[in-house]
Design a protein around this nucleic acid. Structure first.
Lengths: 247, 247
DNA sequence: GCAGCCAATTATATCGATATTTCAATGAGG
DNA sequence: CCTCATTGAAATATCGATATAATTGGCTGC
């Protein structure tokens, strides 16, 4: 699904381009949860025809970022406290299995891929999206690539597919909570220690570390999310300028 | 995702209609694995414009039934022995968790829903798709509803979503292998015993039974699939009438 | 005053036509 | 004889226009 990794192939279709842009806008909060996605509004916003926009939105339903209501258009998927908790639990569970299998089956190339991914991550500064969106996307790419590299050798494409799905969905919550880099200053160390445990094939420790890694982020989010998602009942502005209207 | 359950709401869009029809055609083998899905061909076949077809295909990528190649159109997703094995393993694993949680959290309504689903399943005859497609779809609906009812109370929508995804994908293999009802004559008994174990809250036994249930189908498939998917390297006809061509 | 219906408006969904890209066959050059 | 560029044909991707459905606001009748 979400083909985050590839980027520089020539001749990308409008649809794929829109898919990426809209996805990023949803994840980063440019399009708020629950927001109605009017086709005309999007056409103006992204400068494209209705067909590729619809197609991109259809693809995004697969990632759980967009909801499609028959004859009633599209809207940005809602977020909720409970869903995040579920997501987190599910991810920990999948991760454990994937990681153990990868450590069991992984060979030299796997190890080396981890080393590379970890190096790249360490060399890519973490930049808040409102400072530089491009730089932030760079970091995100490296971050996902690193975590992916750990489980890549698990031997089951099916498992990896689900893993990736949940990664993306959980990722969105990070942005919604607007976690700044300062709230996790030692995150690079955590990554390093995880990588070391994995490379040393210390399965129990690796699992423990990575679950703690996820959970710690989760704790931060749980305290931050309510503030970010509750304001909905009380509409901020009397004018409906928070929906994506065309004129 | 795959909204199998609903069917008789008024005012369905062309896209949703096509989604269902194409999905059924892929699952039931009317559109062979790997088959190129030319838009013009589909337009003629289903009598619809290109836009809703594209949209339906985009939605189907979420179910893993269709593959989208940028600038190169759509094709029916391939099937493989390995993928099926992965799928099966993954499903057993998810099922165990879902089932245990459901048995832990489920209340009276959950139990009663199982009883109803089981009754409906027992009253719906299993009909091969080539005898009556409609009757077969009825059975499929009941079958999924029954299995769904067992895990429905697991408390995690995320888990249920993944469960449903994998159910649909695995389902496809049943059709590919063309398992006839005769090869599993006692399947109704299996369902009954599973339901009983679940309702009696005997977790270990329930898990054992349902995993055996899945695995037994899997065994049958593994012996049948190779015959069904191998013929590809040797094209049956010199004319390319096996692809979906327009003229 | 309020429920329910109708018309005008808005937005969605769909079509047919066109621009772009890929694919396949052909021919020139090494 | 094989490799690589070229060109014509086929298919994809996209646009603008239109049909169709949902929604809003006002109006009538109780």
């Amino acid at each position: 699904m979400a083909n985050t990794a590839y980027s520089n192939d020539i001749a990308r279709s409008r649809t794929s381009d829109l898919y990426d842009r809209i996805r990023d806008d949803i994840i980063q909060g440019g399009l708020a949860p629950g927001c109605k996605l009017k086709i005309d509004g999007l056409r103006e916003r992204y400068g494209a025809g209705g067909t590729p926009i619809r197609e991109a939105l259809s693809l995004l339903t697969a990632d759980g970022l967009v909801e499609r209501l028959d004859q009633r258009g599209f809207r940005v998927a809602e977020v909720s406290d409970e869903e995040f908790v579920e997501l987190l639990a599910m991810r920990c569970w999948l991760e454990e299995r994937a990681l153990r299998q990868a450590m069991h089956k992984g060979g030299k190339e796997w190890e080396e891929a981890i080393v590379v991914a970890r190096y790249r991550l360490s060399r890519t500064p973490r930049v808040p999206p409102d400072v530089s969106q491009a730089a932030n996307l760079d970091y995100e790419r490296c971050h996902k690539a690193f975590h992916w590299s750990l489980v890549a050798a698990c031997g089951s494409n099916t498992l990896l597919r689900l893993w990736s799905q949940l990664y993306n969905e959980a990722n969105r919550y990070r942005y919604i909570a607007r976690l700044s880099p300062f709230e996790r200053p030692y995150i690079a160390d955590e990554h390093d220690r995880i990588a070391e445990a994995v490379l040393a094939r210390e399965a129990d420790r690796a699992v423990e570390l990575i679950v703690a890694h996820y959970t710690r982020t989760g704790q931060l989010l749980k305290t931050t999310i309510p503030a970010a998602i509750e304001p909905k009942p009380a509409p901020t502005l009397p004018t409906d300028e928070d929906e994506l209207t065309s004129s």
